[in-house]
């Protein structure tokens, strides 16, 4: 299983050059059954990454481009009157797919955003009184432009909390970008990718991830981190219990990907910026953008052992 995972990672890395860590974290996020938020400037390859992941994981893929006039019905689906049949027929929306790329989620209105986020949380949608289950597995990779850009509706903290990780890709390294420039178009590569996993394989891996041992000592470290965010005055608010659960799930996943069946503090340290970054805000930070310095402070100041 791990060999397959490695194959999956290397395939993704062929497409997505020079961002091994981000790719790894993204995979870890999916293995932990979490949703992923990609935050970066346009053109950094967010969509490519989502495509790649969907391909190698063998998941049914749908992309929803969020715009300011997108309505909840456009995502969930609507009932349309069918003259031939003489009654309303439900036309399911793009959300009934296994991997959803919610592109530029912060361009949609809060109403639409929350329609998606509720679906993410509950794994089912209720349309016109009927509850419809979403497929299993169900992943959402949302991308958003930095908040400072115009025409955006900032995702509220309560919604951000539902994403297991927030990743930011950043500019590629010089060598990677050169390879990008000289090589094939990334989009052209995508159709050639072969899925590495089937659904059963993915489910099996997720089972194994959930079984990764988290010892008392590690849980204590995790709690020390969480408590620090709750008590130290520089944090506007602390990490919620959902956040702690997310942290432990991501830690397990990372430990599994490192080939261990137990988690160690270093795993926590690796995933912490991605898991906690969007859940924290500095008290003095009025822009609300969040800051990696808080996470760095946590990593630096909280004793490990």
């Amino acid at each position: 299983m791990r060999a397959k995972l490695e194959a999956c990672l290397s395939t993704a890395n062929q497409v997505f050059l020079g961002k091994e860590k981000q790719v790894r974290l993204a995979v870890a996020c999916l293995l932990a059954r979490g949703h992923l938020l990609l935050e970066d400037l346009p053109g950094m390859g967010k969509t490519t990454l989502s495509h790649t992941l969907a391909k190698v994981m063998g998941l049914d893929f749908q992309r929803i481009q969020f715009t300011s006039d997108l309505l909840p019905g456009d995502i969930l689906g609507t009932s349309i009157f069918d003259k031939d049949v003489g009654r309303f027929v439900f036309h399911s929306g793009p959300i009934f797919a296994e991997l959803i790329l919610a592109d530029e989620i912060n361009r949609a209105t809060p109403k639409t955003q929350s329609a998606l986020l509720e679906a993410m949380e509950e794994g089912q949608v209720t349309i016109e009184g009927a509850t419809r289950a979403l497929p299993e597995p169900f992943f959402v990779i949302a991308t958003q432009n930095p908040a400072s850009q115009s025409g955006t509706f900032v995702l509220p903290e309560s919604q951000l909390d539902r994403f297991l990780m927030r990743l930011s890709l950043g500019y590629p390294a010089r060598a990677a970008e050169k390879a990008l420039l000289l090589g094939e178009s990334r989009r052209d590569l995508l159709p050639c990718l072969e899925p590495v996993f089937d659904h059963a394989g993915l489910a099996a891996i997720q089972e194994e991830v959930a079984a990764v041992n988290v010892s008392d000592a590690l849980a204590d470290y995790l709690l020390r981190l969480v408590e620090a965010t709750r008590t130290h005055p520089q944090f506007a608010w602390g990490i919620s219990p959902r956040g702690s659960l997310a942290l432990i799930a991501a830690t397990r996943s990372w430990a599994y990907m490192a080939g261990r069946d137990y988690a160690i503090p270093e795993d926590v340290q690796v995933v912490l910026p991605a898991v906690a970054g969007h859940r924290l805000r500095e008290r003095a930070d009025y822009s609300g953008s969040g800051d990696s310095s808080l996470v760095q402070w946590l990593l630096r100041e909280v004793p490990v052992l």
Binding site: R230, T231, P233, F235, W237, R283
Partner: peptide, 11 residues
Amino acid sequence: LVGLELQAANV
């Protein structure tokens, strides 16, 4: 009283 640690939380 021994071994009790106090920490101020947010105000």
